[in-house]
């Protein structure tokens, strides 16, 4: 099994937003689970760390929460993307792609043709 990577600062929020965009309203456990799955289990993610990130996003207005009933009849807090959150996600995706591209150029200087 490959070495697990730590969650880089700032990337967790992006993953949360993207997850909510893909799956619609979801509880914290579901979000954590999904992130782990998408990463192909290559991320060392403590599920607990998702909650401060969720709180922060909620404070910023990117997501909203309300109590609901889970698929197996449990009371759980559901998070959903707000309109502002969608905008935020677009922006972060763009930023991230740009950053990744720049970093990639540094890491592979030979490819920078321009």
């Amino acid at each position: 099994m490959a070495e697990k990577a730590d969650v880089r600062q700032g990337t967790l929020a992006l993953m949360v937003l993207k997850t909510l965009e893909a799956l619609g309203p979801l509880h914290g456990y579901g979000i954590a689970r999904r992130i782990e799955q998408v990463s192909g289990n290559r991320l060392a993610l403590n599920y607990g760390t998702i909650y401060p990130a969720l709180l922060k996003l909620e404070q910023e207005g990117s997501i909203a929460s309300e109590w609901g009933i889970s698929e197996n009849n449990r009371k759980a807090k559901y998070y959903r993307l707000t309109r502002a959150g969608r905008g935020q996600l677009k922006k972060e995706e763009r930023d991230w792609a740009q950053t990744a591209a720049i970093i990639a150029r540094f890491l592979n200087p030979g490819e920078s043709a321009s």
Binding site: H27, G28, Y29, R33, Y47, Y51, R74, K75, A76, K77
Partner: peptide
């Protein structure tokens, strides 16, 4: 109180899984 409930729910969901 809300956090305790939410985290408890999280653990319950996980345990059931």
């Amino acid at each position: 109180r809300e956090w305790s409930a939410e985290l408890a729910a999280h653990l319950e969901l996980h345990i059931e899984d």
